[in-house]
């Protein structure tokens, strides 16, 4: 084994940990916050819906990279300074939670109206209809697209590299640069190959889980 491999591998492993931490934080916050926001989007209150709708449209509509630049380079101008990891996490959570909110809203609204009607006719108040009849069905419908979003969020963490977070991709890039400077050989192919395999290994089980969920949903 060539001598450059061990230190690079160690460096990449550190990057991978950062990537996983960033993904974990973004996923947890996005799913929890997004579910709450999605639930607010189906509330009868118009004012609430409007406020949440604004949040969702803004952060879902912006390219994540623009949001990241904004948080990292623009907010410090008004005195809000974040370290790179926190800035990246905030950006990913804004994007993730607004997308989760849309998935949750869509799932709730895809439950046929007859279900809420039947529950109402039995005497369930609004929250009872939601809790016992609509939400349990919405959760099943929301799961496949939610897993898809989790995969997507994991992939999007690589954007954090552009504001300097030392994630897997950034670690790879720096390794390549250093090897080029020190030995004149880039070793880009094996290093980026490793990066590719790692992302693939993380995301493949999730995409296949999403497919399985979708299939089981179709079979009812």
């Amino acid at each position: 084994m060539p001598s450059w491999v061990a230190p690079v591998a160690g460096y990449l492993a550190g990057g991978l940990l950062t990537t996983l931490a960033l993904a974990a934080v973004s996923i947890v916050v996005s799913v929890v916050l997004g579910t709450v926001l999605g639930a607010l989007l189906v509330l009868p209150s118009r004012a609430t819906r409007l406020a949440v709708r604004c949040y969702v449209e803004i952060w879902r509509g912006l390219p994540i990279i623009v949001t990241l630049f904004f948080i990292f380079f623009v907010l410090p101008v008004v005195g809000l300074r974040f370290d790179t990891f926190v800035a990246a996490a905030i950006g990913l959570c804004l994007w993730g939670s607004s997308n989760v909110a849309e998935v949750v809203r869509g799932a709730v609204q895809s439950v046929p109206h007859g279900q809420a009607d039947a529950a109402a006719a039995l005497g369930f108040p609004w929250h009872g209809r939601m809790r016992h009849v609509v939400f349990p069905q919405a959760v099943r419908r929301a799961l496949p697209p939610l897993v898809g979003l989790v995969v997507n969020l994991t992939q999007q963490t690589s954007l954090a590299a552009v504001i300097g977070v030392l994630d897997l991709l950034q670690a790879a890039q720096r390794s390549i640069e250093r090897l080029t400077l020190s030995s004149g050989v880039t070793h880009a192919v094996p290093i980026l190959g490793a990066v590719l395999v790692v992302y693939f290994v993380i995301c493949l089980p999730l995409t296949s889980l999403s497919r399985r969920l979708e299939r089981s949903l179709r079979q009812g």
């Binding site: 046929p112 007859g114 009607d117 039947a118 529950a119 006719a121 349990p136 069905q137 099943r140 009812g220």
Partner: peptide, 13 residues
Amino acid sequence: IGMVFQQFNLFPH
């Protein structure tokens, strides 16, 4: 007031 619908509307879950 009991109500029965054309599409049954049983709770599938």
